[in-house]
């Protein structure tokens, strides 16, 4: 599903190149649950951003579903966002001015899903995540764990084939974190959604089936769990 070939990322500053990523080459198949681990500043987030097409690599090629997406125009990229990729953020990043319901609805609106279909999908998600009662609340009225649930529900609304999660439990207490990770596992196993997460925690990484260890921009280990 994802093929990275020799990805490099560096910033040139006064003639000195400071590398973030070096020679990253890897393949991620449909249905995998990959955790990217490594110390702070190792380049985990940058790698995830490149995977999510939020940043472009300085060098190398990136194929997504058999298509070269190394540098893509806005329209095509957004087409991918609408249909294939869901994002989950450490700080949830719900839109403060929207209710839970509207937050989940937003990607569907961009995808131009009909209103009946929209309503049923959202009802489904609310139900599945046990947040039906919260649908008319605003993000700041929810706990962190609940916000992250909404964040995941939002990511799932457009029925993506892959979810990119940047430290999804970083701001959560351990009990809530566990709940989220179980959810991810379930999504991966039952719905076959590919998940790539960046995490610090060994424990969270265990939920996946493959771990990429990164240090100083280089992939140091690729372990199947």
């Amino acid at each position: 599903m994802i093929e990275l070939k020799n990805i490099e990322k560096y910033y040139a500053n006064k003639g000195v190149k400071s590398y973030i990523l070096r020679h990253v080459t890897t393949t991620i198949k449909q249905g995998e649950f990959v955790s990217i681990m490594g110390p702070s500043g190792a380049g985990k987030s940058t790698l995830l951003n490149i995977l999510g097409m939020l940043e472009e690599p300085t060098y190398g090629t990136y194929e997504f579903m058999g298509e070269n997406v190394t540098s893509l125009n806005e329209r095509k990229r957004i087409e991918l966002y609408r249909n294939h990729i869901g994002f989950v953020f450490q700080a949830y990043h719900l839109i403060d001015e929207m209710t839970v319901y509207e937050n989940i609805e937003a990607p569907l609106l961009y995808k131009k899903v009909g209103s009946a279909e929209r309503a049923s999908r959202i009802a489904n998600l609310l139900d599945r995540f046990n947040i039906v009662a919260k649908k008319d609340l605003f993000p700041n009225q929810l706990s962190g764990g609940q916000q992250q649930l909404v964040g995941i529900a939002r990511a799932l609304a457009a029925q993506p084939s892959i979810i990119l999660a940047d430290e999804p439990t970083g701001n959560l207490q351990s009990a809530q974190a566990e709940e989220i990770m179980q959810l991810f596992q379930k999504l991966n196993k039952e719905d076959g959604i590919t998940i790539i997460q960046v995490t610090h925690s060994e424990k969270n990484a265990e939920y996946g089936n493959r771990i990429l260890h990164i240090a100083d921009g280089v992939v140091k280990g690729d372990v199947q769990v």
């Binding site: 957004i78 966002y81 609408r82 990729i85 994002f87 953020f89 990043h93 839109i95 961009y110 995808k111």
Partner: peptide, 16 residues
């Protein structure tokens, strides 16, 4: 800014 970023990754065009 945050809102703009989130909307963009949800598939909003700049035009929208």
């Amino acid at each position: 800014a945050k809102e703009v970023g989130v909307r963009k990754v949800m598939g909003s065009l700049r035009k929208q």
